[in-house]
Design a protein around this nucleic acid. Sequence first.
DNA 1: AATTAGATTATAATGATTATTATTTAAGTA
DNA 2: TACTTAAATAATAATCATTATAATCTAATT
Lengths: 141, 141
Amino acid sequence: MEKQQLITKLREKGFKVTPQRIDICRFILSSKEHPTADRVYQEMLRKHPTISIATVYQTLHLLNKIGLIEEMGSSVGISRYDPNTSPHINIICKNCGKIRDYEEESVRELWSQIITKLKVTPVGQHLEVYIYCDKCKELGT
Amino acid sequence: MEKQQLITKLREKGFKVTPQRIDICRFILSSKEHPTADRVYQEMLRKHPTISIATVYQTLHLLNKIGLIEEMGSSVGISRYDPNTSPHINIICKNCGKIRDYEEESVRELWSQIITKLKVTPVGQHLEVYIYCDKCKELGT
DNA sequence: AATTAGATTATAATGATTATTATTTAAGTA
DNA sequence: TACTTAAATAATAATCATTATAATCTAATT
């Protein structure tokens, strides 16, 4: 998403455009690493040394509300954020928590077949497959 | 799972069989409501008035470890526990958090097609579809 | 009955997230 | 351009699910 497009989107949703907000949005929207709030905060500190983590949370929540990112819960009690809101599979190591995306047209097709059977109107989805990654398997978990 | 079968399973995995443990296991393993740890704790208090919530957590974790239940993370920071470990869809209200299961042979079939493409060895999965349930839609979210 | 490794209880500690409040600022208006 | 104000930010306190700790207690073996 272009910077100008982002600014327009924020304004049309009634949110003010601040430097902190722009940088948080740009970072998370282009991120491939499913970062935690703290990871985003650490990144922002480089450019905004006095930024508050509350600002990071507030921005992540608003992006979630307007549908630009998905909040991924986890069993260790830390949320991660994913800018990819289309149906795709997150391959997650049950040991180290590392996430890899599997994005394929065939997944979207098969998934839409499943959804059709459900007779509901989805507003999002999380498809998570748990594995033990090569690194963790080597180390014996 | 029968009581005797459960006892055997616990013993063969090297765990001691205590009254608290049996009751926690029996409750969660037959539960359809994806309870939280606190929900399990409240239920156990009826029969074991001095039970500690630490015991509940310990037992839920051991059941998860031996593969009898799945821990479901959530974005509100509370885990729920599901004794249904086969591939099925959890239909979750994004507003009130209520979970409904959708369990169909066709889901398992389509899912296994997806897994085949992944070329990984899954040790579990969570398929979550987010909706707004009828009750929450009525109340205007 | 004695032994002991593991379980339980009670409670303290942890840590991610949320709430609060004073201050600052974006953005509309005169 | 200066004024206004509703919203955003920063700093910090509060919350609360979960985990850690330590002192009993007990299941299961000898």
